[in-house]
């Protein structure tokens, strides 16, 4: 499932090739909140990781795979009610056979996620 237009909507994007600043709006009616958690909608941290992957795909123009996450800190609990809009800053640098990705998700109040890892071009296996 691509999360864009389900879990979040992209409001704006400014990029210079090696970095990007994205503004997104969380969708409060997204079906993930039926199960995470019933009557207590909380953003799954892994959906923020998937959001960073999708935004990095926009930045690079290729489908990517997450090869490694060096460190991802989820520093505050996010909910679509308390942080309806978020800023995602992504900076890329070269890595062996891929890119090193540094990302931060925040709003004016607080930082929700700090992320560092490596992604590589997706090569679907043929089976």
């Amino acid at each position: 499932m691509r999360l864009e237009n389900h879990y979040y909507e992209l409001i704006s994007m400014h990029t210079d090739g090696q970095s990007g600043r994205f503004h997104i709006a969380l969708c409060p009616d997204c079906e993930v909140y039926r199960g995470h958690f019933p009557d207590n909608p909380v953003c799954p941290g892994v959906c923020h990781i998937q959001t960073v992957k999708e935004l990095t795909e926009r930045l690079t123009g290729c489908r990517l795979r997450i090869r490694a996450i060096r460190l991802c800190r989820l520093t505050a609990v996010a909910t679509p009610a308390t942080c309806p809009e978020l800023r995602v800053d992504i900076r890329l640098s070269p890595a062996d056979n891929g890119v090193h990705v540094q990302a931060r998700m925040a709003d004016a109040e607080r930082t929700y996620m700090e992320y560092q890892g490596e992604m590589e071009k997706d090569k679907p296996e043929t089976e």
Partner: peptide
Amino acid sequence: YIGEIRKF
């Protein structure tokens, strides 16, 4: 809640 992921 997941607080941190390291060396994934």
